[in-house]
């Protein structure tokens, strides 16, 4: 299932770029389910890579293996050249269901990663304050998660991941719980984060449009057996004006190609 070559695909080969995270021949079996089989994929530093694929193809599994939360049945993951053996300060996870402490205020939730790393109270709250401000939640420091909307909770989870200043941000469908307007706002915010913070983003999504809109590189995962079926690099789009990108023929072409290749698995 080769993708037709378009000018959207970059000439630049990922192997020459600086690689922040690489998964080599990773397999993962849950009892009888083969979630991942011999998967290899590289994530260039400072860029956003999307994992796109049908439900159950192993996106969350791959993300958790990179995070060190799951052990692969075979293969290795390297982050900054070091083999992953467990969670580490170089990676931060943004959870699909937010994973906020319901008994803690917004500021304690945002500072929780720093709290676990032993940063002193005043220092960690100053850092948390900054990121609460960055994600647009200032004024809600003393609120509790149940007093926030889904989108606001997601921003708390994002601020928490940003505040530990990890090199790699792992985001599992971070925008799936928000409405369409908020989602578009988040996508724009995400693009400016990628541009301003020198971090590597690994981003799981169900939405083809979202993947094409925000990604430097899209890995298309297919199930049974799970593998990377294609890597698409819409680098041409990244130089274009964000406000008109959704009408851009190149954008529409890429969305269409991905849809064609995924369609067979949806039936």
């Amino acid at each position: 299932m080769a993708m037709p070559q378009t000018n959207a695909l970059s000439e630049e080969s990922p192997s020459t770029a600086d690689i922040a995270v690489s998964a080599r021949n990773v397999s993962k079996n849950y009892d009888n389910v083969e979630a991942l089989k011999d998967l290899s994929l590289e994530f260039p530093r400072g860029q956003l890579t999307s994992l796109l694929g049908p439900s159950g193809c192993g996106k969350t599994t791959l993300l958790k293996i990179i995070a060190g939360l799951l052990e692969p049945s075979a293969g290795t993951v390297h982050v900054n050249g070091q083999a992953v053996t467990g969670p580490g300060p170089d990676r931060a996870f943004v959870f699909q269901d937010f994973a906020l402490l319901p008994w803690a205020s917004v500021i304690r939730n945002v500072a929780f990663g720093l709290e676990l790393r032993g940063v002193a109270t005043s220092e960690r709250e100053a850092i948390a304050e900054k990121y609460i401000n960055d994600v647009g939640l200032s004024g809600f420091e003393k609120s509790y998660p149940h007093e926030l909307s889904g989108g606001m909770r997601q921003r708390v989870g994002l601020a928490r991941a940003l505040s530990v200043d990890a090199d790699v941000l792992l985001m599992d469908e971070p925008f799936s719980a928000v409405d369409e307007q908020t989602r578009r706002k988040f996508q724009e915010d995400l693009l400016s984060l990628v541009a301003n913070e020198n971090k590597t983003f690994i981003f799981v999504t169900h939405s083809i449009e979202e993947a094409v809109y925000v990604s430097d590189q899209i890995a298309i995962l297919l199930p049974r057996p799970s593998r990377v079926s294609d890597i698409i690099r819409p680098t041409g789009l990244r130089e274009k004006d964000l406000t008109t990108i959704r009408r851009d023929p190149e954008y529409l072409d890429i969305v269409d190609e991905i849809w064609t290749s995924l369609k067979t698995y949806v039936e």
């Binding site: 958790k64 995070a67 060190g68 939360l69 969670p87 580490g88 300060p89 990676r91 931060a92 996870f93 959870f95 699909q96 269901d97 994973a99 402490l101 929780f112 990663g113 676990l116 790393r117 530990v164």
Partner: peptide, 14 residues
């Protein structure tokens, strides 16, 4: 307990 709270704490090195 919500499993992801535990994973969250674990991922931040608890």
């Amino acid at each position: 307990i919500n499993r992801s709270l535990i994973e969250m704490a674990h991922s931040f090195g608890a």
